[in-house]
Amino acid sequence: MIVAEELYKGFDGVPVLHGASLAVRTGEIVALIGPSGDGKSVFLKHLAGLLRPDRGRVLFDGHDLARLQPSALAELRSQFGFLFQGGALFDSMTVFDNVAFPLREKTKMREPEIRMRVQASLAQVELDDVMEKYPAQLSGGMAKRVALARALILSPKIMLFDEPTAGLDPIIGHAILDLIGSMQRRLGFGGILVTHEIPAVFAFVQQVAMLYRGRIQFVGTPQELLAAEDTMVRAFVHGSLPPGVFQPVDDTRPRDSREGLAAGGGR
């Protein structure tokens, strides 16, 4: 179980998170929705320990991420997978090496076994024919699928998806969401999916949370979301917000914020 308790975070004096709290139970997928620029990605990076909150804490199975030793944090992160908005594929490596990278670095598997695992994983995302290509040679949708295969190769307990359909056309976008849904059913991971794809994600998420002005404004099932009385929630879900109501917060990060919890730690 992963719990964010009253997270506060600001950059250059500009508040981004303002007491955001959320709990995700094991095996449960929560869709995180909200206006662009309101800190969804920042919130997600706190859950992965990539950013340290100014106040508040993130608990994973009872462990406060900010208080863990670097080695313990690195160990704990083995249970995490993160699908970044741009895929974050290592551009100096081929598709095969990208997917094999976590296995080579985090397990003692031999190369033939790694090859089998990677081939199987790429076959699951229907990309077993591009193994020798480099990320720059892939389309946006293909890169996202490769990144998904890499994120899932260590069978994480918690998956964090940062707008997996951003920048993709609707058909490819829905195909990616279907793929995430089918992988979730097969592997049983829980986690958070930052998305604007309402109601496409309702098919496989158990909860929906809405982040608005740095706080979690709403948490409930998809049905509860659709029936919500809150004006902001209704307006956002139905896409009928009057202009000027939302005032997105600038979530640009200063450079020092990038010294995440594990900087200098890990293996």
């Binding site: 990539l50 704990l76 993160f82 290592f90 990038r258 995440g260």
Partner: peptide
């Protein structure tokens, strides 16, 4: 690697980017 979140990916994998 920093702006394309490849360094963040290393950290998420529990690996030390300095190394």
């Amino acid at each position: 690697m920093r702006i394309t979140e490849q360094i963040d990916e290393l950290e998420v994998l529990g690996l030390n980017p300095y190394r």
